[in-house]
Design a binder for these strands. Structure first.
Lengths: 242, 242
DNA sequence: GTCTATATGCTGATAGAC
DNA sequence: GTCTATCAGCATATAGAC
């Protein structure tokens, strides 16, 4: 057929179609051939726009992360928005976005790499925590542990995974006598568990923050705990990954 | 060749070999052909022992979950071990086990299903929390949110995913000026973030527990919060998944 | 009941024509 | 920049040896 007058493909069109496929079916459903067919094009044509399938998935992941609302962090240094409020808003948005694209979550395991939205998010989280008064090393930890919680909450539904066959539990698992009802309540359980965990984390971190800031006040420049990378001044330096 | 005098394969041998392959390389490295080759056998022979590749991975996941230490929960009802101690011990063991088999974590997304070790763990967590005085609906949430945190912490390293090339960050991400150092401190950051999050969660949950128990004391039988599945007496009933 | 051999239709990726 | 042709490797199915 030869080269068309106008390109049939573009990175954006490929990524959008791939995301639609991931959402509609699964990560495994995205094959270069299927994706190409969906785009009305032959398989290898994709390689003119991306280095390979992994690069396409990487771009899809970053597109999804771009949907996360990080505007709350801007107010932390500026108008004195409490860091807790910013963190809460971000965590809820982050979870909501991942819940909207649940099949993409395992792809977060590969790391942030050079994805611009992932780095933008890390920068915002870490920057706001430092602005709020968290020592750098602690700010890193807080960003990381928040990410643990949010990504874990998006990695498949908890409640939805229980068989709704009561016979599975009878006799063998004495406390799971009503577990066959869990699948029905899936959404409510997943969400209320997330909210409960978020509040617990905020309460716990607020206590820690008070201690750290008080300690630091008496000893200016201290980092509030063991440095993550002893020997390097200031410790490690960031807040978040993907 | 026909049927050998003594079976060459067994479920255990297949699972052990598959796990070794997952750990040494990745989840994708496990193909029926490679696995069979590793076992000195031809590909389709595996189908005499498992329904398909998915069933093999499922068995691998359950084997891994069997390594998690849930003995701490036994003492909660019996000798009055604080639920916080039991939860902490379990969470640390759970994380440690997953950290020992990091490539398996994405496979946890598929849910607990009928895996015996996953159900055994759910039973232990939920049972202990209820024994400790948590209302059933709340106990479910606590188990779920703990799982969120632990599995999230095991889904790939945070710090290890940052490129160690300082040029990636310069100019564009103002707060990540030291992020290129993160990869070196990976292990320490991942662990200290986990510990910090665990302590924050325990502190937050302890506060909530006090409130819930106080409220319940005045109103025996109350469930301490909105029921996860309104209309069903007692709400949903379990604590943990995979 | 456990294996081997063979076959089908997928997959990611490459080479070269236009 | 897209095409066709082609490759090696994949999960799985089936038939038959013992």
């Amino acid at each position: 057929m030869g080269r068309p007058r106008r390109p049939l493909l573009s990175r954006d069109r490929i990524v959008a179609t791939a995301l639609a496929l991931v959402d509609a079916e699964s990560l495994e459903a995205v094959s270069t051939r299927r994706l190409a067919a969906e785009l009305g094009v032959s398989g290898p044509a994709l390689y003119n726009h991306f280095a390979g399938k992994d690069a396409i998935i990487d771009a899809v992941v970053d597109t999804v992360l771009g949907e996360v609302d990080i505007t709350g962090f801007a107010g932390v240094g500026a108008d004195g928005t409490p860091w807790q409020d910013a963190l809460r808003q971000w965590a809820r948005s982050y979870r909501e976005v991942l819940a909207g694209h649940p099949h993409i979550v395992p792809a977060l395991a590969t790391g942030p790499g050079r994805r611009p939205h992932a780095l933008r998010m890390a920068d915002a989280v870490f920057g706001a925590l430092v602005d709020a008064g968290w020592p750098r090393a602690q700010a890193t930890r807080v960003g990381v542990l928040m990410r643990y919680f949010v990504t874990g909450s998006a990695l498949g539904s908890f409640a939805g995974g229980f068989p709704d066959d009561a016979a599975v539990y009878a006799g063998t698992y004495p406390h799971l006598d009503r577990a066959h009802l869990l699948a029905d309540a899936q959404r409510e359980i997943d969400e209320s568990a997330f909210e409960a965990g978020l509040e617990a984390l905020m309460a716990g971190l607020t206590v820690r923050y008070a201690a750290v800031v008080a300690e630091r006040g008496g000893e200016p420049g201290a980092d509030g705990g063991p440095d993550p990378a002893p020997g390097r001044p200031g410790g490690a330096a960031t807040g978040q990954k993907s």
